[in-house]
Amino acid sequence: MAANYWESSQRRHWLFTREQLDDLRKKLEDQGQDLVQGYPLPQLRHLSIYFNQQIARLGKRLGVRQQAMATAQLYIRRFYSKVEIRQTNPYLVIATAVYLACKMEECPHHIRLVVSEGRNSWPDFFSGDTSKLGECEFFMISEMSSQMIVHHPYRTLTSLQGIFSLTQEESALAWSIINDHYMTDLPLLYAPHTVAIMAILLALVLRPNQTGVQSVGPAVGSIASAAQAALSSVHSSKPGSSDKQNAGPRTKVQRLANWLAESNVDIEDLVDCTQEIISFYEFQEQYNEKLTREQINRFVKARGLDK
């Protein structure tokens, strides 16, 4: 339920295995083969980066807080696990998700304001008709079976940062890794606390005094192996081994490993989760915004979805 992830609709209805998710998407593609062939699109990771940029654009205009934008991103990912993207106007879907997420996260904006900012953001692809957004809201809620309460990893991060004595920089880095995970399938594949721990682990391995996540591309391989090493030490570490106060990142990693050894967190999940985000950072290097935008805009225009 609302406070309890284990009984939440998120865990019961919106948590998939990789295979289940692939099947869902395959089915959508099979249903619209002509469309899929007629309008090729970049890989999902790159579409997600593009959507994230557009959400951020709209969110900035409206002054939306990060958590509401995260909720909007999750709504979009859920929605497109049920609806083929080429059937929709992604700009309208983005604006609708932001509009709905703001209501759900208790920072509502009037529909007219969202529509007018949507129109300012994407003048050639966005109708000024509020009823279009209202209609899309029905569509989105219906596809999500009205399950709109979402659990984010931010809360786990907030409650764990003290336990692992994270510095402000380490917390900030973990926070931004959580922000980034909404551009991947991770929120549909793992529990929010797993994602939060992955983010803490990576933040400790990456070290904030390095240049930050965006530019780690070339070093991804070494980060992956450092993270792996930290995780494999979970199995060998003895609980209760001595920790020093004000420990450096290396001992913090060790402390995290000790803590994991005693927790119920599934280490396999954590390994997979880490690999997924690392491979996302690799693919991010090849992202081509112009190509992505053109391919989306092409089907929106050709199919008259902006009307």
Partner: peptide, 9 residues
Amino acid sequence: IREMALCSE
């Protein structure tokens, strides 16, 4: 929206 979301949980 609140009622729909809460009742669904």
